[in-house]
């Protein structure tokens, strides 16, 4: 398979990017966790990918190609942020990196599953999750509004995240059965 000629190539790249950007975004967010840094890296990946699109082999999955570029960008980022990277040994980071890449490519299915799982949450859990992750309300603010403390709210969020992760996994496995 070959690339289309310009200007169709631009449209082709755009279409591929739109289809796959969430996977690479997920991979970067998992690797970095700091949302602002992750967005910076994502934008670098987008720029790199558009510049180097001629090197993309259409026989390969585009998401995997983007994740490859993201890996290089992350290495650059880690060089600047050594403290963060020093948390784990390189061989362990490689193991995680591989798992992140695998899971990232499932992001769309996981989002579908998560939406269903979130619908089943009790209202107060939904509110809690939305306030924290949708509105970025500080833990202390949430705690104050419900007469609790930040530690307890954090513990509750951890439990809800775990519940959701288990629910998503069950749905994913059920889908693949």
């Amino acid at each position: 398979m070959t690339h289309p000629d310009p200007p169709d190539r631009l449209e082709y790249f755009t279409r591929l990017w739109v289809q796959n950007q969430r996977a690479v975004a997920a991979f970067i967010h998992m690797s970095l966790r700091d949302a602002h840094h992750a967005e910076d890296v994502l934008q670098e990946v987008a720029a790199d990918a558009s510049r180097n699109f001629g090197r993309y082999d259409p026989a390969r999955p585009f998401a995997a190609w983007l994740i490859g570029i993201a890996r290089q960008r992350l290495v650059d980022h880690y060089r600047k942020q050594e403290r963060q990277r020093a948390q784990l040994s390189q061989d362990v980071l490689d193991l995680l990196d591989q798992s992140y890449a695998e899971v990232a490519e499932e992001v769309d299915d996981r989002l579908v599953a998560l939406r269903k799982c979130m619908e089943k949450l009790p209202e107060h859990h939904k509110l809690l999750v939305n306030r924290r992750y949708g509105f970025d309300d500080p833990l202390a603010d949430i705690a104050k509004s419900i007469g609790s403390n930040a530690k307890a709210v954090n513990a509750m969020l951890t439990r809800v995240r775990k519940l959701l992760a288990d629910c998503v996994q069950q749905r994913m496995e059920a889908t693949h059965d």
Partner: peptide, 9 residues
Amino acid sequence: ARLSMTGFC
């Protein structure tokens, strides 16, 4: 990875 992905999602 799955837990981390859940946070992103």
